[in-house]
């Protein structure tokens, strides 16, 4: 019998800093968006781990910006539209979102897979954005066919993948200790990540030929200890965008915003000031 035991998974948060989460309906599908803070817009595109709208870094950024953090369909329990087969569908979904959310003169900040999405969007139409920040981003292949530029996160044990993501190993979550509900959420995000990145793996072979269209000032922020995509990869990626700067943050892995939040925020603020 259902009844008292029913758990409502979709929680609407109205929390500190005026954070507001809403679901908007677009021609292609629904999108959950969290906004917090006020100031110039900062469009925050999350990576394969799911939304970081609740992460302290979002609050820090919200002290200066209106942080606008959509959840990519399929992450955090949201539905993947039936026709989605990969990144191209997500990119076109976001073209609608940019208009629906009235994105204007925004700082575009994309992390990991969200960095790939950001590079795609900025190369299609950079006029929405004042600055572009790519954090440990994937999206291009910089080596030859047999160079493993991007670690195959689906071809190594999940706990090993976690280790490659963190500089300080104790920061990596212990999967075995998580609740079934949280694990199912991680598994669900992993399915979405697989959908968007499976083949060609984590990149678009055509993207390098379009990156010159990113005309906004661009900064690459990289965790120096990132084992998924190394700083060499990041530097080669940065070299594909005219004038892009590259900064490595020591003692941080694939998620420098989490391991070195202060330094990360200060890099963002310095670049956007």
């Amino acid at each position: 019998m259902l009844g008292n035991g029913v758990i409502t998974l979709s929680k609407r948060r109205e929390e500190a800093m005026g954070a507001k989460t809403e679901t908007i309906t677009l021609p292609i599908g629904k999108c959950t968006v969290t906004r917090k803070g006020s100031g110039p817009q900062l469009l925050l595109l999350h990576g394969g781990g799911g939304s970081i709208a609740d992460h302290p870094v979002a609050d820090r950024l919200a002290e200066k910006f209106e942080v606008i953090a959509p959840t990519h369909p399929g992450f955090n329990g949201t539905k993947i539209p039936d026709h989605f087969d990969g990144m191209p569908e997500l990119v076109h979904f976001y073209l609608d979102i940019l208009d629906a959310l009235k994105i204007e003169n925004a700082v575009l900040l994309g992390i990991s897979m969200g960095g790939w999405l950001a590079a795609e969007l900025a190369s299609i139409n950079c006029s929405y954005f004042s600055k572009v920040i790519l954090v440990d981003a994937v999206g291009v292949k910089v080596g030859g066919p047999t160079d493993r530029d991007i670690m195959d996160v689906f071809g190594i044990p999940p706990d090993e993948a976690q280790k490659l993501m963190y500089h300080e190993q104790s920061n990596a979550p212990d999967l075995g200790s998580l609740s079934d509900e949280i694990l199912a959420g991680i598994a669900s995000n992993r399915i979405a990540l697989g959908l968007y990145t499976w083949e060609p793996y984590m990149h678009n072979p055509k993207l390098p030929q379009r990156l010159h269209r990113i005309t906004a000032p661009t900064l690459f922020i990289w965790g120096e200890s990132d084992g998924l995509v190394t700083t060499d990869y990041g530097k080669a990626y940065a070299a594909l965008i005219p004038g892009a700067r590259f900064v490595a943050i020591p003692e941080a892995g694939h998620s420098p915003y989490a391991e070195q939040t202060d330094r990360f925020v200060s890099e963002v603020l310095a670049f956007t000031d």
Binding site: F154, G155, I156, P157, P158, L175, G176, L178, D180, L183, A184, G185, I186, A187, S188, R190, I191, L193, G194, L195, W198
Partner: peptide, 23 residues
């Protein structure tokens, strides 16, 4: 067969995938 080969994303529903991840 280790879990990551028997658990490619999208093969199993999330609940079963989670159990494989957990070992």
């Amino acid at each position: 067969v280790p879990g990551y080969w028997s658990n490619p994303p999208g093969y199993h529903p999330p609940q079963i995938s989670a159990q494989i991840m957990k070992g």
